[in-house]
Structure formats: C-alpha cells, structure tokens
C-alpha cells in the first residue's frame, strides 16, 4: 500500500502547485483591479456628460488632493464669470466713469474684412520617451454629442484645435487618445505608466519641438471632469493629456473615468 500512498502524496503536491499558481494569477489580477481607482461616479452607468461642468464642485474627488491636477482642484467658474475674465478685448477704460461722463477717446482700427491671422503651428506628433509613447496627432474639434472629438484610430491621438496649441504662451493645450479600441490597446494606454517628472515632447508643424514635464497624473470620474479648467484658453501654459480609465461599462459603452496627465513647459 505504501507505493500507492506515495502516489497519492505526489498527486496532492501537483494539485497544490496548480492551486498556488492559480491563486497567484488571481491575486495578481485582483491587485491590478484594485490598483486602479474605483470609479466615484454617482451616476455610474448613465451617459450624461452634459452635467460635467455643473457636477464638479465636490472637493472629495480623486483629484482633490493634487494641487496641480487638471480637474476638480477648485469649483469650476461659471462660464459667464470665465468669459468676463478672459474677454480678449478689454476696454481701455477699466474704471467706471460717472454716469454721463465721456471717456477719453478709445483706440480705433479699420473695420475692413481682414485676412485670417496666422495661427500658431499645429502639433503633429507626441512623444513620451520614458514610456515608449510615440503617437501621430490629428487636429480635432467637437463631436456631434458635444464631447471632444477623438481619432477613431487608437494608434493616433487628437489635439483640440479650438484651444491653445502646445508651445504657445497661454492656456491649456489638450491632447486626447483612446486607451483602446475593439482590436486592442491604444497608444495612450502607455500613459498609465507615465510618472511625475517624465518629459513629453510635442513636434510642431513648423519643425520645432515643445518640451513639457509631467507634474501630475490623476483619475477623475467622468461626470466630475472639470472641463472648463481642462479646456481653459488663458492662464499659465499647460499641456493636458487625456485618456480613459476606470471600469468599462457595457451599458454605456464607455469607461467610467478619465486619466488626466498634466505637464508644464520646460524652459529653454
């Protein structure tokens, strides 16, 4: 009976080994799940991006403790207040004159139809050497549903052409790409590996390169993405890279969260 017993012991060992391997795989998988932030979206499963600007005053979003985070670090200004702050044509007479008084003559210019001013050079390629990201860029606008347009091809990323261009002096340049598509991972999946301090290089259409350094990487539940701050046209020059993260919702066909990488220009 001994040999048979020994055989049983060998069987036990094999079974244990298989179990250990399986548990290890499962554990690794669970760790992966847990290491990404759990979505905070209150309206998980609904598709209501309309509320993004208004729904963001909460201070306990994942981004709240990141001082330089793109999103939710402060209650978004109302669009109206925003507008008065960045009116591109400030009046030369800032102080309110008394009723009926006459201001000093304002500057004047020809009202003739002018040629379109030369726009800043568009970005054509984004590189993040530390995570082997090298992605061609398309100039994109707004999709029919009011959200930012993203190139279909997950191997490309889109620069929001209505906002500032990378390399310019004011406001936030936004580049977004799909984290994946139906055929597999997208180029911007690499952003999940990017770290604070990593350099980003943006090649511009005029042949120059704008260099940035990552200062933060945060996940934000989509309804709480502070779009007014993300897409601001004025203020300190910033580059924002945006992709999706969180859980995949089969109901909506969207991920629950946005991953927002914030970078500042490297001087010189």
């Amino acid at each position: 009976m001994r040999p048979r017993s020994r055989r049983r012991t060998r069987l036990d060992i094999v079974a244990l080994l298989v179990t250990v391997v399986c548990v290890a795989v499962a554990g690794w998988a669970l760790r992966g799940l847990l290491s990404s932030p759990v979505p905070q979206a209150a309206d998980f499963g609904t598709d209501s991006p309309v509320s993004t600007a208004q729904a963001a005053p909460s201070s306990d979003t994942p981004a709240a403790d990141d001082a330089s985070g793109a999103a939710a670090t402060e209650a978004p200004e109302s669009p109206v207040a925003d507008r008065s702050a960045d009116d591109g044509r400030p009046a030369p007479q800032a102080a309110a004159p008394a009723a009926g008084s006459v201001p000093t003559p304002p500057a004047r210019s020809s009202a003739a139809l002018a040629d379109r001013p030369d726009p800043a050079p568009a970005p054509v390629r984004l590189r993040a050497p530390s995570v082997d990201l090298d992605v061609p860029l398309d100039a994109v606008g707004v999709a029919a549903d009011g959200q930012m347009e993203i190139p279909e091809d997950a191997d490309r990323a889109g620069w929001y052409r209505h906002g500032p261009a990378p390399g310019t002096d004011n406001g936030s340049a936004v580049i977004a790409g799909h984290v994946d598509d139906r055929s597999g991972p997208g180029a911007f999946l690499a952003l999940t590996e990017a770290r604070e301090g990593d350099e980003l290089e943006v090649d511009l259409a005029d042949g120059s390169t704008a260099t940035y350094r990552i200062v933060s990487r945060v996940s934000v539940a989509k309804p709480e993405l502070a779009v007014d701050d993300l897409f601001r046209r004025d203020g300190s020059p910033t580059l924002h890279l945006v992709t999706c993260t969180g859980e995949w919702s089969r109901q909506t066909g969207h991920y629950t969260d946005n991953l927002v990488v914030t970078a500042e220009p490297v001087q010189g």
């Binding site: 009011g146 959200q147 930012m148 993203i150 799909h178 779009v227 897409f231």
Partner: peptide, 9 residues
C-alpha cells in the same frame, strides 16, 4: 468647453 472626453471604445 466640450462636454467631456470619451477616449475609450
């Protein structure tokens, strides 16, 4: 601003 960034499909 656009209403959001739908960057995964």
């Amino acid at each position: 601003a656009p209403e959001g960034v739908p960057s995964g499909q």
